[in-house]
Design a protein around this nucleic acid. Sequence first.
DNA 1: CTCCCATGCGTAGCGTTACTACCTATAGCG
DNA 2: CGCTATAGGTAGTAACGCTACGCATGGGAG
Lengths: 112, 112
Amino acid sequence: MRAEALKGHLDGLLLAALEDGPRHGYAVKEALRDTTGGKFDLPTGTVYPALHRLEQAGLISGSWSVVGGRRRRTYELTDEGRRSLAGARDHWQEFAAAISTALGGSPWPATN
Amino acid sequence: MRAEALKGHLDGLLLAALEDGPRHGYAVKEALRDTTGGKFDLPTGTVYPALHRLEQAGLISGSWSVVGGRRRRTYELTDEGRRSLAGARDHWQEFAAAISTALGGSPWPATN
DNA sequence: CTCCCATGCGTAGCGTTACTACCTATAGCG
DNA sequence: CGCTATAGGTAGTAACGCTACGCATGGGAG
């Protein structure tokens, strides 16, 4: 799965990965890979800058810790991040419905 | 609807708009606006360059005509364009399913 | 008759954003 | 001792839709 198509949707996915609870960057990457069945196995060079963006935007907040001699930056959703995630879900559904309609063919075949 | 999220999906939509039959650029733009209920009312500066890209890629072929003193470039799908459209549909479904899963919440609320 | 608007095509430059490629560091295993 | 997985990071690139323009014609408003 080419991740280029993600443009504009990655942020929502990262927020969703943090909804279950705080995670550090590497774990976010793995969670995303697992929940998508390996379809979105993003390079770290995509994930880390994106997390930095989200933090700067105030959607997540990070804190350093050290586990097993390795420093970790653990992120968790802020209230604004939670709101943004809800918005991203709404936006996605609207977007997906519009694309599916315009693209034609069977509208919602999903993974049946 | 912010069309920025279209990144990587616009081409498929344009191809789909040409599936019913040949259309000129402006008509493609209108068709897209109508089939999406006004959600994707793309500026011409988005549509024309995209059509040029598709033509260069050999997915559509264009020909000039003059209607009412105005020149028109009418495009139609090539065989390769038709194949690409089918691929775009497959790709979209896979992509949408993956995003929906990762984004969580209600998986396929669609427009029920 | 003139001006504006819808139609119709087009380009130049910009900004966002994911990508590739690379760097640092530790722990554990062969 | 080197390789791999884990864990974090940066620099530079490229794609692509966007904004903001420009050109032209025909028809309707004034």
